[in-house]
Design a protein around this nucleic acid. Structure first.
Lengths: 127, 127
DNA sequence: ATATCTGCAAATGGTTTGCGGAGGA
DNA sequence: TCCTCCGCAAACCATTTGCAGATAT
């Protein structure tokens, strides 16, 4: 556990914003000024393998990262782009059902919702 | 509707394999030898906007495409990498429940399962 | 001591785009 | 005709990687 890895994990654990690698890099640089972006990517991959963080890589050309390693679901606003955590309970029933019907062994699943977040709805024109 | 777009759509409709842009390019080139890869990407994006196809872009550095534009779920084998369609009914209840709890407006959702497919299980060593 | 990690900078690779010419409606 | 699309090749850009020196244990 190097200083770089520790700081990167702290930055990610300290936000609920599901940031990009570049945002994490900018924040961590405040603690380690000569940090390099390559090191951020390397450590994000290591932390992912260690099961400490999650990578959210869907519907975009770049990844976001999540400091909460326990499976949970996300909502992405297609207007402001932000990603929110959801409180929906994990649907293990679906895994079991799918395994039975398909014959595949299922280890995990991902569920994401898309739409317009509460705040963006409020600032939309009221037609 | 140009010849290129028509052939690209036919190739994608004619397979259940959820291919990459490059695979589609190779297949379509059999019909249009001087087709260019840029044209394949441009038409895949157009067909996506038209609602004729879907892009599957998760857990990978490249996209796969699906000629079935109606929402359905997928299973990806982490051993052979193949993507399979699932017969699981669409869980509209989850959208409604999530909208009520979170206050966001939800338009659609995506659900993917990961594990080891039936065939890869059969060829695994029996420890 | 030594295996691992770092900063740097160049490479990678899927995807996008600017251009001038061709083709569909 | 006119607008859209094409092939080509270069550009883009998030991510990865080779290297030589530094650091963790």
């Amino acid at each position: 556990m190097t200083r770089q890895k520790r700081v990167i994990l702290e930055v990610l654990r300290g936000t609920k914003s599901h940031p990009t690698a570049d945002w994490i890099y900018e924040q961590a640089k405040k603690m380690i000024p000569d940090l390099s972006l390559g090191t951020v990517y390397r450590n994000l991959n290591l932390l992912k393998e260690m099961g400490e963080i999650m990578e959210l890589n869907y519907g975009s050309t770049f990844s976001r990262f999540d400091g909460n390693p326990h499976n949970h679901y996300h909502f992405q606003c297609r207007q402001c782009g932000r990603v929110f955590d959801l409180d929906l309970p994990i649907q293990n029933k679906l895994e079991k059902e799918t395994a039975e019907v398909s014959g595949h062994r299922i280890d995990n699943h991902r569920l994401e919702f898309y739409g317009v977040c509460r705040e963006c709805q409020a600032s939309e024109p009221k037609n």
